[in-house]
Design a protein around this nucleic acid. Structure first.
Lengths: 218, 218
DNA sequence: ATTGACACGTGAAGC
DNA sequence: TGCTTCACGTGTCAA
């Protein structure tokens, strides 16, 4: 803003003062050709680059009302908003269905004995359910989870976290004495800043959903 | 502030206009001031509008590498691509779960486009299916497997190997570019001596079984 | 001093 | 004919 004012002001002054020399600089051709031609080329490239980007953007947006620059960006904005809304809705629907599916599986799955066994063995060994979330970057988290070893428990955890927009950089799973330890480096799939506490609660809910198939974690 | 700018600008233009009539020496009609000033205002509005749109766009994109115009649009492009991919994946997962819920219980592994996508992406990245087995002790093997990332693929692998009498000391799973790398240290559950080549063939069979789940469309 | 990015004013082209 | 949009060359600032 200050740049704008200053620039305007200065250009104005220059215009005033240098009107005699002329803005086009008719007399100094060599000077203009030297140090302005570079700027000219650079500016040309910059414009072309920006135009290309705009073209790509236009190619990505399905609904375009007009070919204008501003309208292209506007359509892109509305499209992004639509996409974000869609993702949100889809995540919710997916979560609902997952809860239903997990509850059904929990009823039918004959692995309940395994789970009970695992829980007993885990308890006997003094291993506690544990969730630990540490921020290691702006959009990366390190996650450590200990819970009762159960058929499909790992898969459920992975899928639930994927549904909530996490991307797995690396995952390590170890099972011992009826417990399952999952330590993972995850990344927000949109590059958004991740909330540690929120993620922790989410994980707890997921684990509870894994342990007792009737709870909902939406 | 805009008024200020405009005022400054206009005064400047007036200065320039008055001088330009004599400077250019061209056909300086009387409407030069009028026409130019109108075009100037319009152009100014256009630029400001475009800048505002760009600002809004920047506000919508979560991850911005740079404040440049071109990079803003570029980031918006990548963001849109991510969103599109996410919507696609979420829709497929949702579709999967719906099929799973509607179909009979007990049937697992509904194949979907996710696998095909993963296979394509994996192929495109030049990643090959790979199985490596190394003996690290009398009854311990180190196993490395690369195969197409697929829903439940890891679980299937684990369960199949468990069924064949392997105990998992430690397992590491990494997914990237449509491929899944599982490297694991396993132990014969009875302390038997393990045959490397036999284990390798077993793993290959398991992986083929994972891949072999047939396609169902939604 | 050099480079990249920006806003500016202006001429030209399309409705 | 006017109005709008675009690309251009340029001056200026910051790194």
């Amino acid at each position: 803003m200050e740049h704008l004012d200053t620039a305007l002001d200065e250009s104005c002054i220059i215009e005033e003062g240098s009107t005699s020399t002329g803005r086009m600089g008719r007399r100094s051709y060599d000077d203009t050709k030297e140090h302005k031609s570079k700027n000219l080329h650079a500016e040309r490239r910059r414009r072309q680059k920006l135009s290309d980007r705009l073209l790509k953007l236009r190619a990505l947006v399905p609904r375009i009302t007009n070919m204008n620059k501003a309208t292209i960006i506007e359509d892109a904005i509305t499209y992004i908003q639509e996409l974000q809304k869609n993702v949100k809705i889809l995540q919710e629907q997916l979560c609902e269905l997952e809860v239903e599916a997990s509850s059904e599986v929990g009823e039918i799955n004959p692995a309940s004995k395994v789970k009970v066994e695992a829980a007993e063995e885990m308890k006997k060994s003094g291993i506690q359910v544990e969730v630990e979330v540490t921020q290691i970057d702006r959009d990366k988290l390190w996650v450590k989870v200990i819970f009762e070893k159960k058929r499909g428990g790992f898969t459920t955890l992975m899928e639930a976290m994927s549904a909530f927009g996490f991307e797995f950089i690396n995952t390590n799973v170890t099972t011992s004495k009826g417990a399952m330890l999952v330590s993972s480096c995850v990344k927000g799939i949109y590059g958004e800043k991740l909330a540690v506490q929120q993620t922790r609660e989410l994980l707890l809910q997921i684990i509870n959903g894994v342990d007792q198939s009737n709870s909902e974690y939406c």
